[in-house]
Amino acid sequence: VKKMAKAIMADPNKADEVYKKWADKGYTLTQMSNFLKSKTAGKYDRVYNGYVIHLD
C-alpha cells in the first residue's frame, strides 16, 4: 500500500487507478489509515483524503 501511495504522490494522475484497486480489494478507511501511518505526520494525508473522496 505504501508503495502505491508513494506512486500517487509522485504522479497524482495514477490516483484513480490505485484507489479503484484498493476499493476492489475491500480496503476500509481504517485499514488505509493504519497502513499509511508514518513517523512523518501528515505525509500521506493527501492520499488518504483522496481515497475518502473516491469511496464517497
Rank of each mutant, 00 (worst) to 15 (best):
Y27L: 09
V47C: 04
M4Y: 06
I8V: 12
Y48V: 07
K20Y: 07
D45S: 06
M32N: 02
K14T: 09
K37N: 10
Y48I: 13
D56P: 01
K14C: 12
K21S: 14
D56Y: 14
Q31S: 07
K37L: 08
A15M: 06
V52W: 08
K20N: 08
K37T: 10
S33F: 14
G26M: 04
D16L: 12
D11P: 02
S38R: 03
K3N: 09
S33P: 02
N34V: 13
E17W: 11
G26K: 06
E17D: 10
T30H: 12
G26T: 01
A23N: 06
Y27P: 01
V1Y: 02
N34M: 12
K6G: 08
I53F: 09
D16T: 13
R46Y: 14
Y51V: 02
G42F: 06
V47K: 00
A5C: 06
K14M: 14
D24M: 11
K14A: 10
S38L: 05
L29A: 13
K21D: 13
M32A: 02
R46T: 15
D45W: 10
S33H: 13
D11T: 05
M4H: 07
A5L: 07
G42T: 05
A5M: 03
K2F: 00
S33E: 13
A5P: 00
A10H: 11
K2I: 12
K37W: 09
A7W: 08
K3L: 11
V52I: 09
W22T: 01
L36E: 04
D45C: 09
R46I: 15
F35H: 06
A23D: 06
A5K: 01
V18H: 03
L55V: 04
K37S: 12
D16E: 13
K43W: 08
Q31H: 08
Y27V: 03
A23K: 09
K3V: 10
A41R: 11
D56T: 15
N49L: 14
A23Q: 10
V18L: 06
L36W: 02
D45G: 04
K37I: 09
N34K: 13
T30E: 15
R46W: 15
L36A: 00
M9F: 07
V1F: 08
A15Q: 08
S38H: 08
I53Y: 09
G42A: 05
K20E: 08
V52T: 05
V47Q: 01
T28H: 02
A5R: 01
Q31N: 05
I8Q: 00
R46Q: 15
K3P: 04
D11N: 12
M4N: 06
K6L: 12
L55F: 04
A10G: 08
Y44N: 01
R46P: 11
A10P: 02
A7S: 11
D56K: 15
D16W: 11
Y51R: 00
G42S: 05
A5D: 03
A23Y: 10
Y48T: 03
L36K: 00
T30L: 12
Y27K: 00
K21V: 13
A7F: 07
A5N: 03
N34P: 00
L29G: 05
Q31L: 06
D11H: 08
G26E: 06
A23G: 05
D45Q: 08
D11G: 01
S38F: 07
K2Q: 08
E17T: 08
K2R: 12
G42N: 09
T28D: 08
K3M: 12
A10M: 13
T40I: 11
K43L: 11
K14D: 03
G42L: 04
D24W: 06
M4F: 05
G26P: 03
K3A: 13
K25A: 15
V47L: 03
A41I: 13
M9V: 07
R46V: 14
F35W: 15
D24H: 09
L55R: 00
D24P: 00
G26F: 06
N49Y: 14
K39G: 13
D11M: 05
I53C: 11
G26Q: 05
R46H: 14
Y27D: 00
H54W: 15
